[in-house]
Amino acid sequence: MKINTENLKEDMNTVSKIERREFLKIGFLITGVFAGGTVLSLASNIRGAFASTGEFTEKYPYKPHYSMLIRQNLCVDCERCIEACTKTNEVPSYGYRTIILEKVVPDAIGQKREFIPVLCNQCNNPPCVRVCPTRASYKDKNNGIVMIERKKCIGCKACVLACPYNARYFNEEVHAIDKCDFCFDTRLSKGEKLTGCAAACPTGARKFGDISDPNDFVYQMIHQIEKQVWVMRPEAGTKPNVFYMKA
């Protein structure tokens, strides 16, 4: 399933009651359709959903619970993130681990374009893992990153089709599906604190952190009560760990 600014269009009716309830459970209140109608907006509703923030943080199943916050309006499509990612993770020229979508709004007053970074959402409920016949795709039990065990991958591409974020491609060099792993292999496991893309971003559009840690910047940004936060394709029920907001 290709992701682009056309097929991102959704309306509230596509979100089932169950999905709404699920979102409420993780602390978000569905507030309306994001300007332009592309993605649902969700407002942080920790107070509404939980008695205390302590109870709320327990809802994050991983430790650390890695997450990325995209402050969408700060993205200028300089693509230093893509450059850094490609270099760090040896992404071949035909492949990608992250892309920047361009949304053009010709009749908008003022700014007529918007750039939207997209990467693997490291879903808590990942369709790619569910469809993998060999368990090559799996969810890391500790940090929640969706990983691929390359030697188990048979290249059937079931996961490529299942992913609503178009985050996977077949890497001919390694004969396996490749995708973003929040730079776990190349950086996090070696003690780096940030993904390659977040470290390279000159505008702060990409913020990486631990959404279960109240001292973390990402935690603090996402849990501001009055701020609108949204995820991509909430109707897919994937429970993404990539969040979007305007700075």
């Binding site: 993205c75 499509d77 300089c78 920047i100 700014q111 007529k112």
Partner: peptide, 11 residues
Amino acid sequence: QCARCHIGVKG
């Protein structure tokens, strides 16, 4: 309005 001046790699 960053993306009013910035046209990005795509632009």
